[in-house]
Design a protein around this nucleic acid. Sequence first.
RNA 1: CGGAGCGUAGUUCAUCAGUAGAACGCAUGGUUCGGGACCAUGAGGCAGGAGGUGCGACUCCUCUCGCUCCGACCA
Length: 564
Amino acid sequence: MRYSKLFGKTVRNAPKDAVLESHKLLFRAGFIRDLSAGRYLLTPLGFKVFEKIIKIIDEEMQTIGGQRVSSPTLHPLELWQATHRDVAFGEGLMRVKDRRGAWFAIGATAEAVMTEFVKKFSPSWRDLPFVIYQFSQKFRDELRARGGLVRVREFLMKDSYSFAADEESSLKCYWDHFHAYEKIAERLGIKVIPVEADSGALGGDFCHEFITPCDFGEDTILTCECGYRANKEKAEFVRENINLDEEEKPLEIVSQPEWVESMDDNVKHYNLPKSRFLKNVVYKTAKGKIIIAVIRGDLEVNEVKLTKVVNEGELIPATDEDLIKMETKPGWVHCWGHQALYIGDLSLQTVKNFIGGQKEKTTDCVNVNYGRDFTCEVLADITEAHEGYFCGKCRKGKLKEIRGIEFGHVFKYDDFYSKAMRATFTDKNGKEKFLQMGAYGIGIERAMAIIVEAHRDEKGIIWPKSVAPYQVHLVNLNPKSEIRNPKLNADEVYEKLQASGIEVLYDDREEVSAGEKFVDADLIGIPVRLVVSERNGDKIEYKGRDKKESELLDLEGVVERLKA
RNA sequence: CGGAGCGUAGUUCAUCAGUAGAACGCAUGGUUCGGGACCAUGAGGCAGGAGGUGCGACUCCUCUCGCUCCGACCA
């Protein structure tokens, strides 16, 4: 490709709002432009990288026996409703209506569609297991797009789905994907840490995220020396006993000044640590049902964990108006007695003689004991894990926090979808059984951002060979006349390299200074730069983008080096 | 959804009540010619949109749309 004809060009300034380096560099180097929040245009350069990423993923999917298919973007909404995924996704799932008034979900993921797909062939045990996958545009109305290509509202996703007869072969599909994802990350030149995670709105019971460490990442994972690695939304930890050796004292209502409302007020008033107090956090479901999470005062409720326990779709923090409707107000919520679903955290069992739980104008309770004085409908792990807590697995090591970006996600569903959608196969004995499923996804745009985050310097991008838009960036410093460099014609070098099967970006621009060409080459980040100039005579200057030194080679030497 | 902020030339930003300016980019001519070079000339803007207050609005006010950041917070 001649640079002079390439659509898109480099610019000096990145958008003022860009925060992530990947965003700035991809913009400045002319790979992407934004169309609206979270929706990006890809230039020919950007699309080249895109295609290479797709090809690598495609190859690895083929290696584990995946079969590529295609499916529509608009899904009949009933397919989503069958598993209540429409509720779980909430506003994140976009919808449209056709002229007949039929509602469609705009594909945010495709489990239901693929399950429906498989049903149409009445599978037998002989057909199982199998993996089908696709690359398709996904639409998610994220609360907030961010970080350039890191979180977008519309993106290309490789999503695959496995269908198996039993747990064992379903697990094999799962681990096949697990290892394929590690291989893909390696080929893309990025480091990933597989962590246990929550399956969120997608449902299912078991999953791993592949996280790339990055200070600006939006995911937080917790790791332990024992090897335990989990997303913050999943991480299990040990709740230390606070005072279980203390004797249970009789429940007492004591006077308390009106100003004592927040946890900090309590600490100030009683001069006791936060862990001795009861804390209530109020949420509501989309339908308006009030959920009260009761937790030890020093801990924080994790909304994802809570959402999963409640299992009634998205939870919204209650507003002051909601509290007024409950005839209470901030700081005055009771641990019992409200018209609400009470969910307690396991930490309620680590303290004797809690303080709080029934704040009134000038009184509150002390010596409140879980089980004796109140109980919640459900007692579960709804606490957010933090650095420094003891690991839930080995119970010895302390958890450490790392920030990162989610590169891919693998889910095992068992019969979550197949049961709800009555997707069955016939076993050896002619009996109908539910298909065991798994689903696996990688976002292509995000992968591109992660690669750039990992491969760059102050001058620009340094593409790994495997995904570089071109293999070499040929710079002609004397384009105007062959007279200036009679010994070597850059146009001919360009032709010959291409004839050798090498992908070349050829900077043939006239009227552009050498400096500008070098700056552009560094910014664009093609792994090898070749310079043809008068100074180099009949030799070609060969320089790796990540190297400081260059060397002079003849054309054969260059081709040999590139083919190696 | 809440909070903060921003919408002026293709881009980054000035102007902050008196009829719009720079840099980069773009076009043309010339000089340069191995690390975003220089000179000259030129094209390009109903100041996001609607309404209001002023003799007068990019500037102040209201609404609206769009964009960015923070929070999603413990009651």
